[in-house]
């Protein structure tokens, strides 16, 4: 029971982190990062190969690079950094000159190709089989199979999610967040008003990449395995579905979406009686995800919790001028 609840909560924290990043990139700034999941994967792989011992010393049934056997929190910090550092090279190719929909496609193709390369290069990250037996953080000091460890891990993951929530909140409620929204609404006009749109996009690409990298590290530290099948491109679409359902550009919407869509679906199907041939239920799940996106974009394009209108306090109280505007800061 403890394991079930803590697993659920760790997944919730990871999905909340991912949805916050997508809300910042897509909801606030209008960038459709269809390669989002590879940032998460990069974080997970980084954390894994930094905490794993050398592959030759680890039973020899898997092959991978590095294997530095580093202790927590270095792998997590490195995962966050790798997520951030992956952003500039991709951004430089994709975000500079392409039309917005081509940006999305380029990133989608990148996601497919990255998975293909990792799958077909066993010496890199153990190919299709993926990494297993990833040491859990501080497992040399505590028993990772104890209830206490599970709860502590869960608490840590949730605290990180809350911290990131407030960081993203700071960004979107700031003048910079306003500029990002202006760019989303009309990029050409924003440029004509002195906004360096490429640099702005790059900045949210890096911040989102860092968050994604961290979320990957948290996930792999808990489930201890990571393989290409866990980061196929449709996984990104689930997160987009979550943000669209929850409400783009609204952090509370991102959290709600994370709880409703990725977490909710996983749980709902767990309790369904098995019916039909094997594989029918996952297929229906994907149909539902696609249907949710279409349905919400048609009937409620701004989601359950839409972006809030920012109202400035009236003039007679100039000292309080921005209280209401940034009231949630």
């Amino acid at each position: 029971m403890t394991y079930y609840v803590t697993t659920l909560l760790v997944y919730a924290a990871v999905d909340i982190l991912a949805c916050l990043a997508i809300s910042l990139q897509f909801g606030v700034s209008g960038i459709v990062n269809f390669s989002f999941i590879i940032f998460q994967a990069a974080g997970a792989y980084t954390a894994a190969v930094l905490s794993l011992p050398r592959d030759t010393a680890n039973g020899g049934f898997q092959t991978y690079i590095l294997g530095l056997n580093l202790s927590f929190p270095i792998p997590w910090i490195a995962a966050t950094l790798v997520g951030a550092l992956l952003a500039p090279p991709i951004g430089l190719v994709v975000l500079r000159r392409l039309r917005s929909d081509y940006q999305a496609i380029a990133m989608l193709v990148l996601s497919v190709i990255a998975s293909l390369v990792v799958t077909n290069t066993p010496a890199f990250l153990d190919g299709a089989a993926g990494l297993a037996l990833v040491p859990q953080p501080l497992s040399d000091k505590f028993n990772p199979y104890s209830d206490g460890y599970h709860w502590a891990y869960t608490a840590g993951a949730l605290v990180l999610a809350v911290i990131v929530f407030f960081i993203v909140q700071r960004i979107i409620n700031s003048p910079y967040g306003r500029s990002l929204r202006a760019m989303r609404e009309n990029e050409v006009a924003a440029k004509a008003l002195g906004k360096n749109a490429v640099a702005m996009k790059m900045s949210v690409f890096v911040v989102g990449g860092a968050i994604a990298g961290l979320s990957g590290a948290i996930l792999v530290g808990f489930i201890t395995t990571w393989a290409p099948s866990t980061w196929l491109y449709p996984e990104t679409l689930i997160l987009f579905a979550a943000v669209i359902v929850g409400g783009r550009g609204n952090n509370y919407g991102a959290v709600l979406g994370a709880l409703l869509v990725p977490v909710g679906f996983e749980e709902a199907t767990r309790y369904l009686p098995t019916f039909g041939p094997p594989g029918l239920i996952p297929a229906l799940e994907w149909v539902c995800i696609g249907g949710l996106i279409l349905g919400f974009l048609w009937f409620r394009p701004r989601g359950v919790l839409p972006e809030q209108r920012r109202v400035f306090a009236a003039r007679p109280k100039p000292i309080e001028a921005t209280e209401q505007y940034a009231g949630r800061d």
Binding site: R170, I171, S174, P175, Y176, G177, R178, S179, R181, A182, E185, N186, A189, A190, L193, G194, S203, V207, E307, R309, R310, V311, F312
Partner: peptide
Amino acid sequence: EFAQLTVIENLLAAAPTNRGDSLRGA
């Protein structure tokens, strides 16, 4: 116009000299 910004936000978004108008400032 920046459609989903309010009128005053349209103006503020164009202001060049806001310390909060950078990732660091934010």
